[in-house]
Amino acid sequence: MKTFSKSSHLRNVLAKNKLSGKTIAFVPTMGNLHEGHIQLMRQAKKMADIVVASIFVNPLQFGANEDLESYPRTLSADKEKLFTEGVDYLLFPDVEEIYPEGMDKQTLIVVPALSDTLCGANRPGHFAGVATVVTKLFQIVQPDIAIFGKKDYQQLAIIEKMVKDLCMPINIVGVETARDVDGLALSSRNGFLTEEQRSIAPALHQTLLECRDAIACGFDSYQALEDYCTEALKHAGFEPDYFSVRDAETLQAVTCDTEEIVILAAAKLGKPRLIDNVTLTLNPSQDWGMLAVH
């Protein structure tokens, strides 16, 4: 595996691979790699000739009171994991390489509607930071395929729409959320949980599953479910940002045209902010007149 800190050097190498007809899969990360990231690398390896990963803790997507400085950075361990998985190239740029004129003068990519709700409502500017850095990385790597985890469901939806709207010739692939044996979605931030908090954390996923089961059994008062599950999370020790039942495609309220729903939650447990989601395909024969739209 070759590591590049300069985007132009990586671009030159990848151009030669493209000229020889090789396909390129790209997995952007912020490092501190865990099994969830490794699954993304393995999917990339299956789908393309060349696998490129990046590690860049993007300051543009962090708010003023968020954990930019304390975000875990484990480059040596990350490189070893990437090498073991057969990743061909790693891009590891510094902030000046990505934002040479500073972030204040950076052109921003904003995906409307999808960015203003859920995590976007509580983290203003976050998804503009994500969309902007992903666009820049796509321009550097120019991949045929880009791989993302479904744990960050809203982020994946935003990137899919951005690629479509900007006519980027990139196939965006979502990979199912990697979980610990107790159901907790793997995350770099899980390392900040205390032992007691770690024992509580799986309740987030369990609450999502209970909500999904209730809907699958015909309970269609979504607002009541959201309220109940929010209170259940508070009782368990979380500080919920939101618990919401949405149309899986639009991330808006469920309507009579909705074919698949996604149930999303974000909640703080001590210092870490945890996110998770589950989906459910609705039965076409369901009585849509009974749906509660909120």
Rank of each mutant, 00 (worst) to 15 (best):
201 A>D: 07
219 F>S: 04
213 D>T: 06
147 I>W: 09
182 D>R: 01
201 A>S: 01
219 F>A: 05
203 A>F: 14
231 E>I: 14
159 I>V: 03
227 D>N: 15
233 L>S: 11
168 M>T: 07
199 S>E: 15
227 D>V: 12
155 Q>D: 05
224 A>G: 09
209 L>M: 08
209 L>F: 05
177 T>H: 08
176 E>P: 02
218 G>M: 00
181 V>D: 01
184 L>Q: 04
163 V>D: 09
233 L>W: 01
136 K>G: 02
154 Q>F: 01
229 C>W: 12
141 V>D: 04
201 A>C: 05
213 D>S: 12
161 K>I: 09
170 I>E: 11
137 L>K: 10
191 G>A: 02
213 D>V: 11
166 L>R: 08
212 R>T: 00
216 A>N: 07
190 N>V: 02
181 V>I: 06
132 T>E: 05
189 R>F: 04
140 I>P: 09
164 K>D: 09
231 E>G: 11
182 D>V: 12
148 F>H: 03
203 A>P: 13
149 G>T: 12
231 E>W: 13
230 T>G: 04
171 N>K: 11
168 M>L: 14
218 G>C: 06
166 L>C: 14
149 G>Q: 03
196 E>Q: 11
153 Y>F: 12
169 P>V: 06
208 L>Q: 13
177 T>S: 06
139 Q>W: 14
152 D>M: 02
189 R>I: 00
205 H>P: 13
200 I>M: 08
224 A>L: 14
204 L>I: 09
135 T>E: 13
166 L>W: 15
153 Y>E: 03
221 S>M: 09
209 L>P: 06
136 K>P: 03
144 D>E: 07
183 G>R: 11
208 L>G: 10
221 S>F: 03
140 I>Q: 08
168 M>F: 02
206 Q>P: 05
227 D>H: 13
166 L>Y: 09
163 V>P: 07
226 E>C: 04
232 A>N: 06
141 V>E: 05
134 V>P: 02
219 F>Y: 02
147 I>T: 00
173 V>F: 07
147 I>K: 01
222 Y>K: 09
232 A>Y: 01
144 D>F: 10
202 P>M: 08
183 G>H: 06
163 V>N: 10
198 R>T: 12
233 L>H: 02
225 L>K: 05
185 A>I: 05
199 S>C: 13
223 Q>R: 04
197 Q>F: 04
135 T>V: 01
152 D>Y: 08
184 L>M: 04
186 L>E: 08
227 D>C: 14
180 D>A: 14
200 I>G: 03
151 K>A: 14
177 T>A: 08
162 M>L: 07
172 I>L: 08
219 F>G: 04
180 D>L: 10
175 V>M: 12
197 Q>T: 13
138 F>I: 10
135 T>R: 12
157 A>T: 00
170 I>V: 15
160 E>N: 10
141 V>H: 13
150 K>N: 07
228 Y>H: 15
180 D>I: 00
145 I>F: 11
180 D>V: 11
213 D>H: 13
145 I>Y: 15
138 F>C: 08
229 C>L: 06
131 A>Q: 01
189 R>Q: 03
158 I>T: 07
133 V>I: 12
137 L>F: 00
